[in-house]
Design a protein around this nucleic acid. Sequence first.
DNA 1: CGACTCATACGATAGGCATCGTAGTACGGG
DNA 2: CCCGTACTACGATGCCTATCGTATGAGTCG
Lengths: 118, 118
Amino acid sequence: MTPAAPAAAGRALPHPARDEIRLEGVLHALSDPMRLRIVRELAADGGELTCSDFDLPVTKSTTTHHFRVLRESGVIRQTYRGTAKMNGLRDDDLDDLFPGLLDSLLAAAARQAARLGG
Amino acid sequence: MTPAAPAAAGRALPHPARDEIRLEGVLHALSDPMRLRIVRELAADGGELTCSDFDLPVTKSTTTHHFRVLRESGVIRQTYRGTAKMNGLRDDDLDDLFPGLLDSLLAAAARQAARLGG
DNA sequence: CGACTCATACGATAGGCATCGTAGTACGGG
DNA sequence: CCCGTACTACGATGCCTATCGTATGAGTCG
């Protein structure tokens, strides 16, 4: 049943333009513990990671959902590389829109992790 | 029907202790446009404002709800003064837990407001 | 006391969302 | 060509929440 809109189009992942990123959306994305954890790992790595590089205590479906929320809110950038999907922070765009915010958020998260985990 | 737990106890508003404030909770509280607006006005004023000082496009009930979410997440402090209820930012506690975060958030919100509104 | 104001509580409603399971699609290798 | 791996899509479910309207409590002032 070759559909009129081929599923192959799904390979093109929709990202919001830089001007369409909203602070509320970013904060909402980061207000979920699982997503905050993903972002922290991405920031710690500095480069790009595949979805399966994360060992999250949720199913694959839920992981996909969280990555989509992060992408649609403008926090991460996703690109395909073969079967894998690379995930990277959109720190350039975020720093341009909200200078210093991402660093402050990551610092706050690290501080809280140290306080609660240590 | 004088209840065993008198309603007068409602005069004591429950605030989370400083150590119980969670970054995720703060971000979630600020991810709502109405609440972000409230916090921005509170920061702009610098002092304490009553609930009715805000002219929000929602009903009184909803306003009360938002103030409670802000209080329970540790973002604001509420105290009674006669019939009025004064609201103030918990910037001291927040700065202690997450140094610089509140300023970054307010700066980001101001920047976005300038970008979209101007 | 009585009326008025400020804010809360409660019930209802509608929408959003985090989670899962299963089935399906794309890509690479034997 | 078939299979395995990586990710996605879809439907279901249960919870959370933003919103409202109305009724209630608490305090002030005539």
